[in-house]
């Protein structure tokens, strides 16, 4: 009965939080503590909602199997035990409210990136900002395959009754932008742009049946930039940074040196969340390859 817990947690959310779950897009400019206070109840609710939906799915499957077995039982036992018919009927009918409930919970679900990526990242970055330092955060956790995010769609259709037919759609989803000043004076920028490619294929099987298959590929393009103050960090030369290879973009300014590192991660799961470890590793690589001013060469 986990759905009761999920519903109760949803009801405890503020109208602002429910509204965020509804449209899943917003720009924030708040301190890490304020952001965590806003996100935490939603993260807890989201976890509860996922668990409830998983449980409801199991329940539907169980009811389906029992109904099937019940039908067999009706054929064998209905004359001796007339009670079996209404029991099987009730079990069968329970599938529908469970499906509706699961669908309703799905409508107020939010992408797992919120609790598995955004909250940990805000928490970690908040450790290196001053207490009152605000974080600029732009989030778009709405569906990745919304029409508004469609970049191109190509159809390969050899003609009526000719197969296979293939539709390839590419969606761009820049869903995460975070900028802030760290306590050492560095400016940090983290962005994640997802590129989703879906391939819908309709083909004729060997037996002559028309079948459809959908495949999705997701690319998480993570970019981490740090603008380090000359006053705080020794200026790094290209020689110092050979270990980065071509992944690194370096820009020298009057007061700061900007390091920009990119990484692309591929997955087949459209609902997969980004591991915060990936961003941490990128930022860590930059910090590991610079030296505080005054320590260079020592």
């Amino acid at each position: 009965m986990k759905f009761l817990g999920a519903i109760s947690k949803y009801q405890k959310l503020s109208p602002e939080q429910r509204s965020f779950i509804g449209n899943a897009q917003r720009k924030f400019c708040s301190t890490p503590a304020e952001l965590l206070e806003f996100f935490k109840p939603m993260a807890v609710y989201d976890k509860s909602c996922d668990e409830a939906r998983a449980q409801l799915l199991n329940f539907v499957i169980l009811c389906g199997v029992l109904s099937f077995l019940g039908l067999i039982a009706i054929g064998v036992l209905s004359e001796d035990m007339p009670m079996v018919i209404p029991i099987v009927g009730i079990i069968f009918l329970m599938i529908f409210p469970a499906l509706i409930l699961r669908w309703r919970l799905g409508r107020v679900d939010i992408h797992n990136n919120l609790r598995e990526f955004v909250v940990p990242m805000v928490n970690l970055i908040g450790q290196d900002t001053a207490a009152e330092q605000k974080i600029n955060l732009e989030l778009d956790l709405s569906g990745k395959k919304l029409e508004g995010k469609l970049r191109t769609r190509t159809k390969d259709d050899p003609g009526w009754l000719a197969y296979p037919k293939t539709t390839t759609s590419i969606y761009d989803d820049p869903w995460f932008r975070m900028t802030t000043d760290l306590v050492d004076g560095s400016k940090l920028m983290l962005t994640i742009d997802d590129q989703i490619t879906t391939i819908d294929r309709t083909y004729k099987s060997i037996s002559g049946k028309i079948k459809s298959k959908s495949k999705a590929k997701v690319k998480h393009m993570i970019r981490a930039s740090l603008a380090l103050k000359h006053k705080k960090y020794a200026i790094a030369s290209q020689n110092d940074l050979q270990s980065f290879g071509h992944e690194l973009k370096l820009k020298d300014g009057a007061n700061r040196q900007v390091f920009c590192l990119k990484q692309t991660v591929k997955t087949d799961d459209i609902d997969a969340f980004v591991d915060p470890q990936l961003c941490v590793a990128l930022l860590g690589r930059i910090f590991m390859n610079v030296q505080p001013a005054g320590q260079k060469g020592s």
């Binding site: 965590l36 996100f39 935490k40 993260a43 807890v44 909250v119 940990p120 928490n123 970690l124 908040g126 450790q127 941490v280 590793a281 860590g284 910090f287 590991m288 505080p292």
Partner: peptide
């Protein structure tokens, strides 16, 4: 998991499991 304590556990793990050494 959503508290600062998680960060302290995470950083301890991060420092010991990888090569990162903080300034």
């Amino acid at each position: 998991y959503y508290d600062t304590a998680w960060c302290y556990g995470y950083r301890s793990n991060y420092y010991t499991s990888g090569s990162y050494k903080p300034w």
